[in-house]
Computed example of a mutant assay.
Amino acid sequence: MPRALITGITGQDGPYLAELLLGKGYEVFGLIRGQNNPKRAMVERELPGVKLLTGDLTDLSSLIRAYSQAQPDEVYNLGAISFVAYSWENARLTSDVTGMGVLNMLEATRLYAGEDIGKVRFYQASSSEMFGKVQQVPQRESTLLWPRSPYGVAKVYGHYMTINYRESYGMHASSGILFNHESPRRGPEFVTRKISQAVARISLGLDETVSLGNIDAKRDWGFAGDYVDAMWRMLQQDAGDDYVVATGETHSIREFLDIAFRRVGIEAWEPLVLQDPRFFRPAEVDLLIGDPAKAHDKLDWKPTVSFAELVEMMVDADLAEQRALAGK
């Protein structure tokens, strides 16, 4: 039975990845920070097959202990402070966790593996936010990185450190440069879930409007459940490498709003959406669109959920949740 260790088990991607690995017969360990983590109960309830270990990406000794307990064959480093807007308010903490945390994980992997460096396969969750001020459209693995947020800068550090450990020590280390991927499990602070939740509440008469930032920003949006499959496929290759994981399509937040409101029967949504300067980024990333050709060719991976299906899935899930909460 293969053994896998997942950091960021309480985030959006962690549960999808854990479900995938459990379905493939893995023994799965999840790293969780702190004994009183408020999301621990959620993981225990929804993922009873996952064994939880305590550790912190900023504390190398705790990671070494976690490796000793999990004895992993595969490690998926999904843990990060991943809300971009928060990274401007807490640039140092974002750098420590999202950047230096990768170094700690790589070093824990190297120390655990010892002379048998190939016995552990390592996945790093890189991000399309690394492209920032895009220098090429669409963005590929070779596109120059120009991050536009403290989060993006920290991800670049972790990305290059992963490459460095692969080249310096022969580690089987791969980076997935994942473009925006969403789901009903996305946190409500992210714009996609903020919209789907607001649309559900507006349609039920619980709210009147929603306030957003730049609704003309464009992203390459896919389904998180598809993207964790790409992560697993990377670690099944003969050698580590870097892969763009994306749909190859770009859509604006305005298009997201169109589909979301149409799902609840509202066509003229403009009066319901307020633009608030507080939600504009200091340095905006205007257009992100990935070229997933390498993932298609090398991993035999393709997304299965369309943009419209993703939006409708999220709205339907939030409608069900809000109806239950409101007793409707």
Rank of each mutant, 00 (worst) to 15 (best):
L103I: 13
T109Q: 08
F223W: 15
G55F: 04
T143I: 08
F307E: 13
V199H: 11
K155L: 09
M130W: 01
L145T: 14
W269K: 04
F122A: 03
V28M: 09
M42G: 00
E129H: 13
W88T: 07
M313A: 12
P271M: 12
E255F: 03
A293M: 10
A200F: 05
L204I: 11
A91R: 12
A239I: 05
H159V: 07
V264G: 00
T98A: 13
G248K: 11
M1N: 02
D242I: 15
A268K: 14
I81T: 03
G176A: 14
K294L: 08
V245S: 02
Q322A: 15
W221P: 02
V191K: 00
L31H: 08
Y26C: 10
T58G: 11
V156F: 03
V285P: 01
G30N: 03
G30D: 02
Q139M: 15
S196Q: 06
R65A: 13
H172I: 01
A200D: 02
A224I: 02
K298A: 12
E141G: 03
V137G: 02
S149G: 06
G248S: 09
E129W: 09
K119N: 01
L319F: 10
K194M: 11
G176V: 08
K218E: 14
H159N: 15
M313R: 14
A260L: 08
T10V: 12
D297Q: 13
E107A: 09
R45L: 12
G152Q: 05
L31M: 15
Y76P: 06
S203K: 06
D318N: 15
L93P: 01
V97E: 04
K194N: 09
L5W: 05
L145D: 05
A317E: 13
G132D: 05
L319T: 08
G213S: 10
N36C: 01
E267H: 10
Q322M: 15
N36V: 00
N77V: 07
T94L: 06
R185S: 11
A108N: 09
R110H: 11
R278L: 11
I32G: 07
T250P: 00
V153E: 13
Q135S: 15
V244F: 03
S183A: 12
A293C: 01
G205H: 03
E167Q: 14
L288N: 10
I266Y: 10
E115I: 02
R148A: 14
F279V: 07
E208L: 10
R323T: 05
F190W: 12
D116H: 09
G99V: 06
V191T: 12
Y151P: 08
E27M: 08
K39Q: 14
E74I: 00
G265F: 02
V191F: 15
P72N: 03
V228C: 06
D258C: 02
S175G: 07
N164Y: 09
E270I: 00
L145I: 13
R254S: 09
G99H: 04
V156R: 07
A308F: 02
I266S: 05
R186F: 05
S61L: 04
L299D: 02
K294H: 03
R140A: 05
A18I: 02
D56L: 06
L310S: 14
